[in-house]
């Protein structure tokens, strides 16, 4: 049997998160902890972009929570002066689900990497996406395991030579965008660490989206996988990139259409995600699409869960003490003695 769970009015963006009293600065969002990534790591650029973009959200700093798993990028929360948890490998989406479901007034972020999100935490990622829990997931994809010093990851290309694959990796990689679309995520985007403007625009849209937003960020690891994204950076970049905007003309499989991230049916968006060869070395197999692939509205799990609690509360009478007394006195009871 299934019943109509009701369709509560759709919430949008961050309307339930208290607004800041006045303008804030990036400095206020910067913690006093020394940043510990290798020199030249792409993570620095993303951190800078996030620190300078967060004030623009206009939310109270104490209502922002960053949760991460394990990996180089997962040190991210330590560097932001918000609430944060550096959790365990792969589990950040589940912890963020608990936070977002417990509190409507928090703006929740997950910082994860290709190993964290797609290997050990693959299960939590797809389930967060299908539930559409209100959180923004930043997936730093450097196509390598950095923290453990250079093993192939679930996004490394086939044939990748690493310490654990001296004869070339045999694993066929995930395309995180296709994966997220397959899991029916409501917001899916890709951007690049070195393109500050694009990164900021995509993050703003992701943060404003109510539901799970997945943002894949191509991030260079100069130590263990240097140059993985060189083809789509630098002067030649635009010949190797397809910058997606609503209405961008896309041609695939003999068909041409105007990209529509808001289309309910994800089929065309999926077709866009297959453009360019993200399984091989980037840039060889045609332009790689970046931008927003999908942006649709669907009630979030946490809003629905809270609505059920509110509905149940509204349906009962009496103080909590009276109700608890009623509950524990229900069923078979009898009096003993005097």
């Amino acid at each position: 049997m299934s019943i109509d769970i009701g369709t509560p009015s759709l919430r949008t963006g961050t309307e339930l998160v208290p607004a800041a009293d006045g303008p804030q600065t990036g400095k206020e969002f910067t913690s006093d902890q020394e940043v510990r990534w290798c020199p030249g790591c792409g993570d620095y650029a993303v951190l800078k972009a996030v620190q300078s973009f967060l004030p623009d959200l206009g939310l109270r700093r104490e209502n922002i929570v960053f949760v991460s798993g394990i990996g180089c990028s997962s040190r991210f929360p330590y560097y932001l002066d918000t609430y944060g948890m550096h959790s365990i490998h792969g589990r950040a989406p589940s912890i963020a689900t608990g936070i977002a479901t417990a509190r409507a007034d928090l703006n929740v972020w997950v910082v994860t990497g290709d190993g964290d999100a797609l290997s050990i935490g693959g299960n939590h990622l797809i389930h967060a996406l299908r539930r559409n829990v209100n959180m923004t997931i930043l997936l730093f994809n450097n196509r390598i395991y950095g923290l453990t010093k250079g093993q192939y990851s679930p996004t490394s290309e086939v044939g990748k030579v690493t310490k654990t694959s001296p004869m070339g990796s045999l694993d066929h990689p995930f395309n995180p965008i296709s994966l997220a679309l397959g899991a029916e995520a409501t917001f899916v985007a890709r951007t690049i660490d070195s393109d500050r403007k694009h990164l900021t625009a995509v993050l703003s849209a992701a943060a404003a989206h109510r539901g799970t937003s997945l943002v894949e960020i191509y991030q260079n690891c100069p130590i263990f996988n240097d140059g993985a994204f060189d083809a789509i950076k630098g002067p030649e970049a635009d010949t190797h990139l397809l910058r997606l905007e609503p209405g961008t003309e896309v041609t695939a499989g003999g068909r041409t259409w105007a990209h529509d991230p808001t289309a309910a049916d994800p089929a065309d968006q999926f077709a866009v995600s297959r453009l360019g060869d993200t399984a091989g070395p980037l840039g060889l197999g045609g332009p790689i699409p970046i931008g927003i692939f999908r942006q649709v509205e669907r009630p979030t799990y946490d809003d629905l869960a809270r609505a059920q609690v509110d509905q149940s509360k509204a349906a009962v009478e009496g103080t909590p003490t009276e109700r608890l007394t009623r509950l524990i006195n229900a069923g078979d009871t009898w009096n003993v003695g005097g």
Partner: peptide, 21 residues
């Protein structure tokens, strides 16, 4: 609030998140 999680680990993960909150 009850969350039927995708696995045992997510169940405790969500509980830890809720505790933090």
């Amino acid at each position: 609030t009850t969350l039927q999680a995708e696995d045992e680990i997510a169940g405790v993960g969500a509980a830890i998140g809720a505790a933090f909150a």
